[in-house]
Simulated assay, not measured.
Amino acid sequence: MNQSNLSLPSGCILRKATSADQWSIRLLVFSAKLDPTQLRWQQFWVIECNEDLIACGQLRNFSGVQELGSLVVARAWRNRGLGTFLTQHLINTAMQPLYLECLGERLAQFYSCFGFVPVSFENLPQSLKGKFGISQLAKRLIRVPVVFMQYQVSN
């Protein structure tokens, strides 16, 4: 995916989150039923349209790696390329090997379009095993369809 081919709808901007965005970010994340822990507004990028925060995503820092997480587009703004635009921006912004965890095959297919490939829990970096351990337990015990993925840089 090439971000240069993507554009935001008229009136929308991509920017670093500010402290004023923290409650809007929390509301978006809660609305999508995503993991509400580790929401640090300083790690977020947001898309704003007409002064409304309509999408967000963050790069969490771990020892030697980063995690793409909390990617949400407000329901009324879905299917307009905002998730794609934001995902590509976060990939381009990442400074270390990049990982994510997602729920279900549909999301795994979405992220695979960007160059993410499934990786087993055992092959995750040690610094992520603590965070992803609960998901791995849920996957094993109650068959939650969690997929761990690593970004593979394409040549």
Rank of each mutant, 00 (worst) to 15 (best):
Q3R: 15
L6R: 08
S7Y: 15
S7N: 14
S7Q: 14
S10V: 14
G11W: 07
L14S: 04
R15G: 06
T18Q: 15
A20M: 14
D21H: 06
D21P: 03
Q22H: 15
W23G: 14
W23V: 15
S24I: 13
S24V: 12
I25P: 04
I25T: 06
R26D: 12
R26T: 14
L27K: 13
L27W: 09
L27T: 13
L28M: 08
V29G: 00
V29A: 00
F30T: 09
F30P: 06
S31K: 09
A32N: 04
A32P: 01
A32G: 03
A32R: 02
K33V: 01
P36F: 11
T37Y: 13
Q38P: 11
Q38A: 15
R40P: 06
R40Q: 15
W41R: 09
Q42P: 06
Q43D: 14
W45V: 09
W45E: 11
I47G: 01
E48Y: 06
E48C: 07
E51R: 13
L53A: 07
I54V: 14
I54K: 07
A55P: 07
C56A: 11
Q58Y: 13
L59Y: 05
R60P: 15
F62A: 10
S63E: 13
G64W: 09
G64K: 08
V65A: 09
V65E: 05
Q66V: 03
L68P: 00
G69P: 01
S70W: 00
S70D: 04
L71A: 06
V72R: 05
V72F: 10
A76I: 02
A76Y: 07
W77G: 12
R78I: 04
R78S: 05
N79R: 14
G81V: 03
G81C: 06
G81N: 06
G83I: 01
G83A: 03
T84Y: 07
F85I: 05
F85V: 06
F85C: 03
L86M: 11
L86T: 01
T87M: 01
Q88E: 10
L90F: 03
L90N: 00
N92I: 02
N92D: 11
A94V: 01
M95Y: 15
M95G: 15
Q96F: 08
Q96P: 04
Q96R: 12
P97L: 03
L98Q: 00
L100Y: 01
E101N: 12
E101Y: 11
L103N: 10
E105M: 15
L107Y: 03
Q109E: 13
F110T: 02
S112D: 01
S112V: 02
F114E: 08
G115T: 01
F116G: 00
V117T: 14
V117C: 13
P118L: 08
P118D: 09
S120N: 11
L124N: 00
P125S: 05
L128P: 00
L128V: 01
K129R: 09
K129E: 01
G130T: 13
F132K: 04
F132E: 04
G133V: 03
G133W: 03
I134P: 14
L137F: 11
L137M: 10
A138S: 15
K139P: 07
K139D: 06
K139V: 04
L141K: 14
R143D: 08
V144C: 12
P145D: 10
P145H: 11
P145C: 09
V147R: 00
V147F: 00
F148M: 01
M149G: 06
M149T: 08
Q150V: 13
Y151M: 09
S154I: 11
S154T: 10
